[in-house]
Amino acid sequence: MARKEGGSAGGDHLGREWWWDKIAQAVLFGGGISAIVFVIAIFVFVAQQGLGFALFDLDLATFFTSPQWRPTSEPEPIFGALALIVGTASITGLAMLVSVPFSIGAAIFIGEFASGRTREILKVLVELLAAIPSVVWGFIGLMVMSPLLMDVFDVPVGVSVLNAGLILGLMAAPIMTTIAEDALKAVPDGFREAAEAMGATRWQVIRQVVLPSAKNGLVAAVLLGVGRGFGETMAVLMASGHSINMPSSPLDPVRALTATIAAELGETARGSEHYRALFSIGILLFAVTFVINLLADVFVRGRRASR
C-alpha cells in the first residue's frame, strides 16, 4: 500500500467503529450516572411531598419531643415522633447489641480459624441467611418468636422491642458477618506471616495484627448493619407490636418510624397533612441513612488509604 510521505497520515479517517465507540461511550455514561440521578430523584420526589410540610407546617419541637403521634385527631392533629424515634432506636440498639459481637465473632471464626471446606460451607450458609426476605422475618417474629417469648417470659404480648430486636439482629448479622469477613480478608497475608514468623499464636496474630488493621472495615460493617436495622420496615412492622409507646422494658411493644409509614400511607388521602407528615418521616429516614452510608464509605476509604 502506498503511503504518503510526510503530510497527512495514511488511513486517518473517522470510520464507523470510531463513531460507534463514541455512541457507546455516551450511552454507557448515561447508565453510569443513573445511580446519581436516582438518588437525587428519590430525594426530590420524597421532598416534594414532605419538605414544605416539614419546614412550614410541622412544629419541629413537637415532632422531636412529643410522644403523641395523633395524625388524625380532630380538630388539631399532633405530629410528635418521639415515641417512633425511640421505638426505632430501641429496636436497632438491641439488635446491634445482640448481633455485633456475634457477627464479628463469626467473621473471625470464618475468616481466621476455619479453613477449606468448613469455611466454604459456612460462607454459603451465611450468604443464604442474608437472602431471607424481610417479610418472612416479620412473619417469623409474629408467628414463631412471639409465642416463644410469651411462654418464656410469661407475658401476654409477645411482639415487643425484644422480639423485633432479636429478629432484626438475626437479619442484620449475616450481612455484617460478610462485610466484616471482607475487612479481615483485606488484611495482607504478609502481616500475618510476619507475626507468625516471630512465634505469635493464631489468636495473638488476630488480636495484635489482624483486628487493628481491619478496624476501619469492621466499623464500616457495624455502620452498615445499623443503617440496615434503622431502615428495616416489614420485619419491624410485624414483630414490634406496632403500638405508640415509650417503652420502659424490652418486653413492651413499640412502633418504628419505617413501620408507621408502611402502616398508615395506604389510609391517608393524598396531599393531606397526614400524608405529607409521613413523607416528612421519609425525609428523616433518607437523611439518616445517607449520613450512615457516607460515614461507612469514609471508613472503608480510610482502610484503603492506610494500606
Binding site: 446519581i36 452498615l224 440496615r228 431502615g231 428495616e232 400511607l265 441513612t289 452510608n293 461507612a296
Partner: peptide
C-alpha cells in the same frame, strides 16, 4: 450513589 441506593430504606423507595 450506588452505596446509597442500596442503603436507602425500602419504605423510602416506596415513597
Amino acid at each position: 450513589a450506588i452505596i446509597n441506593l442500596a442503603g436507602v430504606p425500602s419504605i423510602v423507595h416506596a415513597l
